[in-house]
Computed example of a mutant assay.
Amino acid sequence: MKKTVIYAYTHLLILSFFFVGCQPKSETASPTYKDLTEAVYASGNVFPKNEYKVVANADGYLQQQAVNEGDVVKSNQLLFLLESLSQDARAEAAANIYRQAEANYADGSPILAELEAALRNALTKLENDSVNYFRYKALYDQNAAAKADVERVELAYRTAKNDVSARRKALARTKSQLYVDLQNTRSNYRVNAREGDNYRIRSFEPARVYEVYKKVGELVRKGEAIALLGNPDDVYLQLAVDETDFSKLKEGQDIVIKMDAYGDKVFKAKVTKIYPKLNKVDQSFRVDADFVGERPSAYYGLTVEANIIISQNPKALTIPKTYLVGNDSVWIEEGKEKKKVKIQKGVENFELVQIKGGLTEKSVLVKE
């Protein structure tokens, strides 16, 4: 019985020494010189440049859809057609009136032909009455005709002369009125044609159709968007930067971009615009950037993660960030003792902190 107890005790003692001997020493490290880049994290999306929405300029039902998502369109290309029965009727009536006005003023116009014929008849009668008048006047001067006959033919001559003058004025007045009517009907026709264009939705410039909001048969109200379009050949980045990092930004800074859609592929960009208004919803500022070199295909809204390069130091004395105690201290080993010292930090990233004071390359860092 005693042997068993002694054996058991001895066994436990051996195990105790084993575990004590196997306890790991405190993890240590020393400051080293490394290439240290300070960057600000940003997230955002890729958007096409010059994006715009086409909207309806009149109420109507979508009658025809000439394009679909993904199509590339030219400038002033017909995209959608709205039903416009009342407008079509007005446009047709205006066109008919305009054509009639053109016919009334054109050469061979029935209205002008009738007035011109009446003028010619009046001129013929004037010529006859003129001959009669001067013949009777000559006979009267020779005492071969009665004064009453001369007065009668003179009255006919003067009446014919006045009739010609009146018919010439009527012809000129009618021509002038027909010209005014033609201009007015032409203006009315053009106005109706422009109003008809309100029912034909066209592109402003070459673009890709990214989204169509309406389907054929649906009612579209005036001012309502029908589709979203954008430049198919150029894209830019729209990023959100946290309020705490905003003061570090400036235009022209380099950016490194990654997108889920492109796996591990890295794109480069530069900051082009910094917006001064804070988005109170997520406490961020908007930053725009243009790609440098290779750019992704113009797909709308691709999600991106970005690092905006604030500074680069090719030879910075650094320590792993995991050795920091609080915000400005570390533990170091001096002889067989641990000592807590304050440091002067420089730039930092997710892994490293630059040491500007408080440590040397020979310092031995230990964790708590």
Rank of each mutant, 00 (worst) to 15 (best):
P232W: 03
N184G: 10
Y262K: 09
G217Y: 08
G217C: 11
N188Y: 08
M259I: 05
A225L: 04
N279Y: 07
I257A: 03
D290Y: 09
A207Q: 01
R194T: 11
R208Y: 06
Y189F: 14
L178W: 02
K222M: 15
Y210W: 00
S187T: 14
R200A: 01
E218N: 12
L278R: 00
R286N: 13
E224M: 06
A261H: 11
K175F: 01
V281G: 09
A225P: 07
M259H: 07
Q253F: 00
N188D: 13
T272L: 00
D197I: 02
V216R: 15
K265I: 08
K277A: 14
Y199M: 02
I274E: 03
D264H: 11
V212L: 07
Y262I: 07
A289Y: 06
E205W: 03
I201Y: 04
R194K: 14
F246N: 09
R221D: 14
R221E: 13
D181F: 00
N188L: 11
A227Y: 09
G196T: 07
A261K: 09
I226C: 06
R173F: 15
S247H: 12
V241M: 03
I257F: 05
D282A: 01
D233L: 06
Y275H: 03
R186S: 11
E218D: 14
Y275S: 05
I255V: 10
I226D: 02
R194Y: 12
L182M: 15
Q183N: 13
A240D: 12
V191P: 04
I257D: 08
V241A: 06
M259S: 15
G263H: 10
Q238F: 02
G230L: 03
A289S: 09
K270G: 00
Q238L: 12
L239T: 00
R200H: 06
N198R: 09
V266S: 09
Y213E: 08
K268S: 11
N231H: 01
